[in-house]
Structure formats: C-alpha cells, structure tokens
C-alpha cells in the first residue's frame, strides 16, 4: 500500500491544522450571510441528500452523476492544506477528498476543452443569502484545464475524517490551495468543460479586486489592502502576522503553469 496513502500525503503540509471549531465557525459562504459566523448559524437549513452533479460541455460522457455513485468510484484521501483567504487571514485544514482530475477523467475530457466552470447550488429557500443581491447567484467559479487537472486540486467531501459540514460546502466542494479561498467553490452542482474562460462570481462583481486567476501573491496587492502578510486564525490576539508566500507556498508544484505570464496583469 506504499503507492496509496504515502503518495497522497506528499502534498500535505506538516503545519499544525486549525481546530474543528476554528474551521467550522469562521467561514465565508455568502449564500448564508456575509458575517464569518453566519454560515455556521444558517447552513443547517441546507439539504445535502440527495445530491448530484451535472457534468457537461466538452466531455465524452455528459450527464447527472449521483453523489453516492461518484463517491463509490473515488478513493478518499487526507490532504492537509494551507488556506489563504483574499481577506489576508489563513488556516491549515485537513481535508478529505479526491483529485478533481479523477472526476474529470471519469467523464472524459474532450481535446477542445481549455477551461472548467463550476456552479454552486441555487436554492434561495434554503440559502437565504441568495435572496440578497450582493453577488450574482448562483455562485460560479472557474479554472484553466491544467489547473483543474493538477494533482493538488481536489474535490473535498470531508474534514478531519468526518462528512463535510454544511457551512464548509457540503457535500462536495473544490479546494485549490495555491489560490485565494474564494476560488474554492462550495456545494457544487454543476461542472462544465469549456473552450473559453468562464465568468466567475467575484470577478463579475468587482473585476478590479478579484481576478480570474486569483493566485496567492504577496507582491500583487488587493486594491484595498496589502497581501504581503496574513493573520493565521487561532493564534489569539497577540499572534504574529506571517509573511504570505508566493502561490501560498505551493510554488514548486504550480509555478511552471504560469511561466511567462505577467501575474500582475493576470491576478
């Protein structure tokens, strides 16, 4: 079994993970309100079973895939990743999940496909934030195909070995550890393979502040605050700010994908 868990953990950080409470009581999930404590308060209203994901666009086997069927096909492993929010705070999170590439390969990606778009569930009767108009619903995100196929990119279905809590994006969400947290879209119901770069929620809302790429980059500031340092959640009121690393410290794995790109322009 050396090929199994050993291969999986090579992507995990050995930093101490944040506690279950920190990870589940401090969330951005605007479908349930804009305060960090809102998701934990209101996400209980979300029904996550039954659940299915519609995979379409440039794939060989388009269709609606039941969550249970997907899970029976995939091998779940633990990935302990740093998460850096665009708001300049960070956490270390022990996710359980599988590589997005495995799911995309299951559906068969056509050669013309260059981008992947993701969509969150739209169900305002359970997600009260969707009745407000601070974002355009449903929440959408996107990746370039090479980013989506990268082994670091996972679909997470759990935390600390337990099922994904609703406030963290149950039952299944994206995790792209070298990008700002808002790229890691929650409660996904639709995945579409495309030739063109898809629209993404935060980019549509405020394109000066949130780019399509959103790679963690201490050298490119958010227009309203510096991205040079971050506050690690859980350190108490006197915790030292820590310097933010390029690609959130995953440069060795991902920097090659952006060779020759002006990252100040493609932020």
């Amino acid at each position: 079994s050396i090929a199994g868990p050993a291969a999986a953990t090579q992507y995990s950080t050995d930093e101490t993970p944040n506690t279950w409470e920190e990870i589940t009581q401090y969330n951005n999930f605007y479908e349930f309100g804009t305060d960090k404590t809102d998701p934990a308060k209101y996400a209980g209203a979300l029904t996550t079973s039954p659940w299915s994901i519609e995979i379409g666009g440039l794939v060989d086997k388009p269709g609606t895939y039941d969550f249970k069927d997907i899970m029976s096909e995939m091998t779940i492993e633990e990935r302990i990743y740093r998460l850096r929010c665009v708001e300049a705070w960070s956490m270390v999170i022990p996710w359980n999940g599988f590589e997005l590439a495995d799911l995309l390969n299951m559906a068969g990606v056509k050669e013309e496909a260059k981008f992947v778009s993701f969509e969150t569930l739209y169900r305002p009767e359970e997600m009260w934030g969707q009745k407000k108009h601070y974002l355009v619903w449903p929440y959408t995100e996107g990746l370039r195909l090479d980013e989506a196929m990268h082994p670091l990119t996972i679909m997470a279905t759990g935390l600390y070995g337990k099922d994904m809590p609703n406030q963290n994006g149950a039952p299944i969400r994206l995790v792209v550890p070298w990008k700002y947290g808002f790229k890691s879209i929650k409660s996904i119901v639709k995945i579409t393979l495309l030739e063109e770069e898809p629209l993404t929620s935060w980019n549509v809302t405020n394109s000066d502040e949130y780019g399509f790429y959103a790679n963690v980059n201490p050298l490119v500031d958010h227009p309203r605050w510096s991205q040079a340092t971050e506050r690690r959640i859980g350190g108490g009121i006197f915790a030292k700010r820590i310097p933010t690393k390029m690609f959130n410290g995953y440069g060795d794995e991902v920097a090659d994908m952006y060779k020759g790109m002006d990252l100040a322009k493609y932020y």
Binding site: Q25, Y26, K36, W89, R231, I237
Partner: peptide
C-alpha cells in the same frame, strides 16, 4: 469578552 474567549475565531478583527 476577549479574555473570556468570546470574540470568535478572529478576535483581533472583531475587536
């Protein structure tokens, strides 16, 4: 509230 640990997960921002 700060000393009682009741300022949430990101006390500095809350304060």
């Amino acid at each position: 509230a700060t000393f009682a640990g009741a300022m949430g997960m990101d006390p500095v921002k809350t304060i």
